[in-house]
Design a protein around this nucleic acid. Sequence first.
DNA 1: GTGGTCTAGACCACA
DNA 2: GTGGTCTAGACCACT
Lengths: 134, 134, 134, 134
Amino acid sequence: MLLEIDHHSGVPIYRQIIEQVEQQIVAGLLAGGEQLVSVRDMAKQIRVNPMTVSKAYSLLEMEGYIERQRGVGVFVAKLRKDRRDAAKRHIIEGILKEAAVKAVQLEIDEQELRDLLAEQYERFYSRSEKRDVK
Amino acid sequence: MLLEIDHHSGVPIYRQIIEQVEQQIVAGLLAGGEQLVSVRDMAKQIRVNPMTVSKAYSLLEMEGYIERQRGVGVFVAKLRKDRRDAAKRHIIEGILKEAAVKAVQLEIDEQELRDLLAEQYERFYSRSEKRDVK
Amino acid sequence: MLLEIDHHSGVPIYRQIIEQVEQQIVAGLLAGGEQLVSVRDMAKQIRVNPMTVSKAYSLLEMEGYIERQRGVGVFVAKLRKDRRDAAKRHIIEGILKEAAVKAVQLEIDEQELRDLLAEQYERFYSRSEKRDVK
Amino acid sequence: MLLEIDHHSGVPIYRQIIEQVEQQIVAGLLAGGEQLVSVRDMAKQIRVNPMTVSKAYSLLEMEGYIERQRGVGVFVAKLRKDRRDAAKRHIIEGILKEAAVKAVQLEIDEQELRDLLAEQYERFYSRSEKRDVK
DNA sequence: GTGGTCTAGACCACA
DNA sequence: GTGGTCTAGACCACT
């Protein structure tokens, strides 16, 4: 699982975890019944206090996205799997809409906008490649 | 100057002020040298404690967007064009970075991402055109 | 950490805190990664409102000297050596600039200025030597 | 008369004026009985509100350094002229002492300190030359 | 426990 | 009139 935590963004860490796990479930990247990484492992992975991960998992459980089984692990709850791509697109469109609005307001032309996006994509795509190799 | 403050959004009020003033300066709606509303006036306007406005102005000054002069008032700093362009790029890059991260996480490939961006841009660009005609 | 605050000097308290902490970091008395006293503790220590300390810490963070982590504490940032050297030079340049301005105004020529500086340096350098021996 | 006003130093402008005029009188650069530039002229020269200059002059008058004659102008009060050079040296030594202390604390060696001073001196000396040409 | 934000109100300093 | 600082105390959010 790929999580990007920004310790300096001001957004609480547990919120960042929740949002990202939630989205990956909704988008179908994490299938129902699949086991999630343990609290400890995720804490190590993203260099965060285990309590913080635990809090995120608790809230995810309350919202019905995951299920905790004592002594066994954490699992993705079964979710109806219709409209997966629609969900993905909805998420990404929200952000791109914001980018488009700002670009128009700031009079940034489409070519520059496109270049900047390519640059950012490159950055994170290559970063995720490296992790997969691990 | 028109500011929209949401007192219940969870986003600190001083941050909202900063973002909106910054936006208006970068977009060129507030020209260099122009006087801003006084701390107390803005505080009344958006129904907030003057210290909150003062804090926002203080940070905006540190970022080089405005200049405060005791006993005189607050003024928009004169930004060199390259500085302003850098600021614009910085704002848009922040959003695009988010889009890139999400795209990679949700396994949306670059082509699709690009198409979705073009779609959104088209939507808002043509909308702003209409306004210009008005 | 030892701080000397003068409540009646006219220099804002938060500025005094900033200067002294900055000084100790740049001089290497506070190592990178080290935890600083908490906002509340320092506030008690120097008998000041916690907000005043918080403001100082906030500015120190913006200048890159420290890092605050909610719910955890405040830590000295890890400064690269060149960054630290630049900071040192900046501090000393501020004072030397003042000396240069005064010298020109009072029509003291460069040679005399240089001699006076050498004299003062000698004085404090040898004094610090003695301390090292202790 | 050469005045260096820093609008961003935090030190009130009227204080900067007072200090600098006072020092030039004490050091003998402004002789007793000599006429000072008018409030308006100085205000133009250093780009400051005339009220600010006037306030500085008022305080200088109260301290006995200058005398205002209605409709005529402002004059330097007669001062005993002993210890002129000593006064100059005392002023400059105060600043250099500070520089020396900081340099030793920050472990800046004498050679670098000397170079930095030369740099600053050059900057302000050449600046004053240009003005003299005017 | 940690830090962050906001308020109401006081007082100061500057132009 | 302008901005700057500080306080006391409340409440929130994070670990």
